[in-house]
Design a protein around this nucleic acid. Structure first.
Lengths: 273, 273
DNA sequence: TAGTGGTCTAGACCACCGG
DNA sequence: CGGTGGTCTAGACCACTAC
């Protein structure tokens, strides 16, 4: 009975408000559909339904959680986007996989990601400079001619072993925060968040490139050796660019995992320039 | 006035049904929210709002399209998943980018993708065999011991130049379709669809690997040279695995583009094995 | 044919952003 | 403060699947 969890919480915290209408039931702590989604997610990754198994009907879930069918559907759409379940007319939803799906924040921060898999992350700023933005940077960060950016070159480690070189360009207001960090700071994401810089969207391009002299020196490979490259433009809730980054990984250290579906795509091939 | 388009279509096809209740208005051809999403998508990629510009309010769109706010929100959630717009409480949605986002089907089929960018795709089956599934294949395709699979080795070309080697494993019912194709058939996806094999979900893992002897011979590179690798497990609407594929691209030919957001993630790093 | 998820409506209250 | 998107409800009809 996976859905007992949320119900218990709710009768404790909000039970007396059950009869109220509108959205006042939610938002108090977290949206109801998120609680339901989290609950079902745990049930699925715990194998409560098995791989290829069927979920209860929406109507059954609605009754069990004491919410409307719309709220249940909202919760399930989260799980569908993560690739945990399919759905189609006529039959109950089917569990596609039981693997845990990292949160968005884990997917953006090398530090959080490393810790989530039990590794010891490290980082060292090799070079940082405040310079006028070039044309590409102005385009990517949506800046005006004459605006300045911070360019940061940094090597990232797992258990003290270098695995990735990170070249990030920040608009001035964000770069100032990074520039104030200790060069050996493990995370830049955390100080940024503490200063109110929030990332809600990211565009990624993944391909292969050859190591240059910086890469060679920092990663201990030869110039020209192939590296897995991720380029990323991240934006805040207002849609303003927060960073433009190019990460280069030693082969064999990491892989990128993506899910897409007819309902929500998000992955595509692109000609490599 | 981007939203004039759908309205015109609708008054032509369904205008007389406007007053009906329930979902009978939709489904007839395509869901209303999909029409609205497609219309807004075109408006955005045509630059009608500019990059960083604001969309009309949901209420305004609802009135303009003659549908409820819920339907508009459903349409906008599609665009948000594609990374075309942000959204947050308090302000209108903002356009994140104006680049066209490929459809899910384009993202799965090398042939469709190549044509969508104006390239001439080709393919040649180098080897195909029906064999008992090994342990990994049984796991990936959710098969029983003793079940057979088809293993297909194929080289893919753009303008007759080899760019990718494809190793695909199919369960028997799908493999039979592929085995019946001309070895030089440009597309396997199309015959599969004609026989009722539909793919609705795909899990991808992207990393770098070294070329083996087959890759070397077919792509004209040296053994050990780095290739961009995509491994993919695709499932049908019922959640049954349809294929398990490993594609290896010559560096510099293609890149993968992904969007993710706090609202709908789907991208993650993984330790390489 | 019964049960399922897909689509749509009409209305409500709220948190949040900006002027 | 008004306007915006976020959340939730209650109900309806339908397309589709599986038996």
């Amino acid at each position: 009975m996976p859905y007992a969890r949320v119900r218990a919480d709710r009768s404790t915290h909000y039970g007396h408000r059950r009869r109220l209408t509108g959205a006042n039931v939610a938002d108090a702590r977290q949206a109801m559909y998120r609680q339901v989604a989290a609950d079902l997610r745990h049930a699925i990754t715990d194998g409560a339904y098995g791989s290829g198994g069927r979920l209860p009907a929406e109507s059954a879930l609605a009754e069990a959680y004491g919410v409307s069918r719309g709220t249940i559907r909202q919760a399930l759409s989260v799980l569908r986007a993560d690739g945990l379940v399919t759905s189609r007319r006529g039959t109950r939803r089917v569990v596609l996989g039981t693997a845990r799906v990292p949160t968005f924040r884990e997917s953006l921060s090398f530090t959080r990601w490393a810790r989530s898999i039990g590794e010891e992350p490290g980082g060292r700023v090799v070079d940082i400079a405040r310079v006028p933005a070039d044309e590409v940077e102005r385009e990517q960060l949506r800046l005006e001619a004459g605006d300045h950016v911070y360019r940061v070159l940094r090597v990232r480690t797992l258990s003290a072993v270098p695995v990735m070189v990170e070249r990030t360009v920040y608009p001035e207001r964000v770069g100032e925060i990074v520039a104030a960090c200790d060069p050996a700071a493990v995370s830049h994401t955390v100080p940024m968040e503490e200063r109110g810089v929030v990332i809600t969207d990211a565009h990624h391009t993944i391909d292969v490139t050859g190591a240059d002299e910086d890469d060679s020196r920092l990663l201990g490979c030869r110039v020209g050796d192939a590296l897995l490259r991720e380029r990323r433009r991240s934006t805040d809730p207002a849609g303003s660019p927060v960073e433009w980054a190019e990460d280069r990984y030693l082969p064999g250290t990491i892989a990128f995992a993506v899910h897409n579906s007819a309902a929500a795509s998000s992955l595509s091939r692109r000609p490599a320039l």
